[in-house]
């Protein structure tokens, strides 16, 4: 536990020691705002809610989260610090989890900084604060899902660009698996049960459910188990690389 917090602290510090954190946060805030106002037609809807704001989160995360996750392991491997890290008396799970949590908290900070959106909508109207809070929680959970995928794919390579591109593709598949682009591919031949299963993997399906204001245990469980599986996969890959 102590080792995990030490790594967590170092990683989180690491984000803010470089321009990366500031660039990421500024772009994130700019994009969330721009998308909500322009693409989403925030004002035209004349609704006091943040639906247009949250609707774009999956698509924004699709590119921004792999950019955060790509350095998690690939960077350590490239610079050689992984040799230091793995020869320190640190249990593997602590390293995997410490790194992941730092990235997750970092994204959480960026997400929290969108609070002026909430203030704006509260000023303009009388929104359902429960829905907004649920949406924030859902968005944070979804970010964790993307990060866990990115963490695993970052462990595979020392090349951050490869880690980024592969993560975007895998995250994309997870995002859209409930949409026709994926479902149609299976619909012709696969039994309904398979299609339902595939559709149930979709980030969008679960995220939409949460943004409607219903925090269902199943959606929580979905994101939790998704993170669990990908983080275990991360540990397995790091361990396999030890065996050469």
């Amino acid at each position: 536990m102590r080792e995990m917090w030490a790594i967590f602290k170092r990683e989180l510090q690491g984000y803010f020691a470089t321009p990366l954190a500031y660039v990421f946060i500024i772009i994130f805030l700019f994009c969330t705002g721009a998308f909500a106002f322009y693409l989403g037609g925030y004002f035209e809807r004349e609704q006091a809610d943040l639906k247009t704001f949250f609707d774009f989160h999956p698509w924004l995360y699709l590119f921004l989260i792999p950019a955060v996750a790509m350095r998690l392991w690939a960077e350590e491997r490239r610079v050689g610090t992984i040799e230091l890290l793995l020869s320190l008396p640190v249990p593997l799970w602590a390293a995997v989890l410490g790194k992941f949590l730092a990235a997750w908290v970092f994204v959480g900070i960026a997400l929290a900084l969108t609070f002026p959106m909430w203030l704006t909508v509260s000023y303009l109207g009388n929104p359902d604060h429960g829905v907004i809070l649920a949406s924030y929680i859902g968005s944070f959970l979804m970010a964790g899902g993307y990060l866990a995928i990115g963490s695993c794919l970052s462990a595979i390579t020392r090349n951050q660009v490869i880690a980024f591109v592969v993560s975007v593709v895998v995250c994309f598949l997870f995002t859209v698996s409930g949409l026709p682009i994926v479902i149609d591919f299976f619909a012709v031949w696969a039994p309904q049960a398979v299609i339902t299963t595939i559709a149930s993997f979709s980030f969008l399906t679960h995220f939409d459910a949460i943004t409607r204001g219903v925090i269902d245990l199943r959606d929580m469980l979905y994101f939790a188990s998704l993170m669990g599986v990908w983080l275990v996969a991360t540990a397995v890959i790091v361990d396999m690389k030890k065996a050469g």
Binding site: R10, G14, A17, V79, T81, E83, L84
Partner: peptide, 10 residues
């Protein structure tokens, strides 16, 4: 380790 790797942002 060879090359004395360290977290260079620290």
């Amino acid at each position: 380790p060879e090359g004395a790797p360290a977290y260079t942002d620290m």
